[in-house]
Amino acid sequence: MHNIEITDLRKLTEFIQNKYGYDFTNYAMSSFRRRIGRVLELNKFPSIDHLIKKISSDAEFFEEFVSEITVNVTEMFRDPSFWREVRDHIIPNILLNHQSINIWHAGCSSGEEVFSMAILLREMGIEDKVKIIATDIDKSILSKAKRLSVPIKNMDLNEKNYIRFQGSENLSKYYTEQNGRAVLDTSLVENVSFREHDLVKGIVFNKFDLVLCRNVMIYFNQILQNDVLKKLHESLFRYGYLIIGSKESLIWCEIANKFIVVNNEEKIYKKIKD
C-alpha cells in the first residue's frame, strides 16, 4: 500500500478540477485514498505526480481513472427484504394517487439495481406505467449498463438474492448466457434511459416520485452529503420517496426535518416539506 498523504490528494483533486471539471475534494477520505492507492498499484505509478502527469496528457486514461475511483461493486436485489418492501408497499402506495411513476436511480453504476427494479415492475405487471432515469458520473460504466449484461460469475449471488426477494419467476427467465455474461432481455428496459450525470456538479433536472440512491453517498464526506441531499430533495415531488443504503442515515443531515421515516430498517424516507 502506498503511503499517500493528504497533501498529495489535495494536489490531485485540484488538478482534476481545473483540467476536467470533476470535483473529488469532498469524497470520503478513507475510501478515496484507498482507490487512489489501487490506481497507483494497478498502473505501477511510483507516486501521485506520475498519476497527475498521465491524467494531464491522456483523456482516455482519465475516463478509466474515474471508473476506478468510483466504486462499481453492486448486486441485483441487494438486501432482498428492501426490494420486497418496495414491491409490497412503496410502489402500491404511489399508485394509490398516481397513474404513472417516475423513478430516478442516482448513481446506477453497472445497472444491477435498475435491472432489479425492471424485473420487479414486470412481475407487478405495471412496467408500462413507469419511467426510469438511471444516471452515473462514470461514462464507461454507463455504457456497460446499457449492454444489460452481468458477469455470469455474479449470477449465483444474484439468484440467491432474487430467491430471498421471493420473485414470482426464475431469475434465469430474464437472461440468456452469452460469452460468460448473463445478458438481460432488452424488453425489460424499454422505459429506462441511462444518462451521464454527476451528483456533485450536476443540476436538478427533473422531478420524481421515487429516488434511489443506495450506497452512493457513503463515498462522500458530510459536507458533500448535505449538498447532494439538497438536490435529491429538490428532485422529489412532495410525498415522493427517497431511499438510501441500509447503513446510511439522514439523522445528521440539514434537511432531515423535510422528510419522515417510512421504514427505518430499509431506510425509506418520504418528503413532506418543500
Partner: peptide, 21 residues
C-alpha cells in the same frame, strides 16, 4: 462492522462504510 460493508475509520473520528470489492 455491518454485514456486506467495509468499515473504515475517517480522520475526524468518524466511521465510513463502503461496498468496495
Amino acid at each position: 462492522a455491518p454485514s456486506n460493508y467495509h468499515l473504515s475509520v475517517e480522520l475526524g473520528n468518524k466511521f465510513s462504510l463502503s461496498t468496495e470489492e
